[in-house]
């Protein structure tokens, strides 16, 4: 770059961003975690955006960051986080010798690219974008003129393709409802009309000794309130048995009689015993 008359500041920006971009590329291939790879790609994208900025293409640079780093890469990251692709990949070769062949092919392609671009660009004077930017009064205006003038048809075709893709995604993600969705209001009205249990379900463990979800709440008379335990646990029979002695002790304490000794009753809810085990 320096021999084509770029300023030292521009050369400095180039060398910093080029190194960062290549580091990001290498990091993408070499990191074991999918999320780390995504971050390295983001670094590469931002470095490229800075290079565009330095080369008098501010609009392209900003759009690069907003669209690629801000939206596309963020969606990747989002999916990685939702799916939980977290563990490192297995490094066992499933196809024999594929790694050697892959490295050779990649190296060959790389050399080809460097040579082709290098010969195509060597000896070509750097024109820069200043003249192109000045033609229509600015970088944004110039891009707009080209996009909505000369390349309008291509632009419209791409727009049509994108809309088709979006519609396709809509159709794929569409789910036919086979019953009307009941609103919160309908559900609450139904609950009141049924007259069974209007309020929220009692929390597990109230008046009992634990607040674990499998400990049923005790009603004032000492009996168990089954609805206080979540349905799936009830269905599996995972109700923690009630410590009757503890209930008696509580009752005794509440009625003002002398406290019973702790050794008077067997330890009922010892955490070692599995919940749901009949006693």
């Amino acid at each position: 770059m320096t021999e084509t008359g770029a300023s030292t500041a521009e050369a400095a920006v180039f060398w910093v961003c080029a190194v960062l971009a290549v580091t990001g590329g290498l990091g993408l291939i070499l990191s074991r975690r999918a999320v780390h790879s995504a971050l390295w790609v983001a670094l590469t994208m931002i470095s490229l955006a800075v290079l565009y900025l330095a080369n008098a293409a501010p609009f392209l640079g900003m759009v690069q960051i907003i669209v690629y780093t801000g939206a596309v890469m963020m969606l990747f990251l989002f999916v990685l986080m939702v799916v939980g692709v977290d563990s490192s990949d297995s490094l066992v070769e499933t196809l024999k010798g594929q790694r050697v062949v892959g490295i050779l092919l990649a190296a060959g392609f790389g050399i080809l690219l460097v040579l082709a671009i290098g010969t195509a660009l060597s000896g070509v004077p750097a024109v820069g974008l200043d003249a192109a930017n000045a033609e229509y009064g600015g970088n944004v205006e110039g891009i707009a003129r080209l996009l909505f003038g000369e390349y309008l048809l291509a632009f419209e075709i791409v727009a049509g393709l994108l809309i088709t893709a979006a519609l396709g995604a809509l159709v794929l993600a569409h789910r036919e409802r086979w019953q009307p969705r009941r609103t919160q209001r309908e559900l609450s009205e139904e609950r009141v009309r049924s007259g069974e249990h209007v309020g929220p379900m009692p929390a597990p463990g109230v008046y009992a000794r634990h607040n674990a979800v499998d400990t049923p709440a005790l009603l004032p008379d000492g009996s168990v309130s089954e609805i206080s335990v979540p349905g799936p646990l009830r269905a599996r029979g995972d109700l923690r048995p009630v410590d009757t002695a503890a209930v008696a002790e509580t009752e005794a304490l509440a009625s003002g009689r002398a406290a019973l000794g702790p050794a008077d009753h067997p330890v009922a809810d010892d955490p070692g015993t599995s919940p749901g085990e009949p006693r």
Partner: peptide
């Protein structure tokens, strides 16, 4: 510069990374 409002948007979209990465 000619696209400075876009610059604010771009910076804001990188800022989201901070929050997302903190969460992850």
């Amino acid at each position: 510069f000619p696209v400075s409002v876009l610059y604010v948007l771009a910076v804001a979209s990188i800022g989201i990374y901070g929050i997302v990465l903190a969460g992850w």
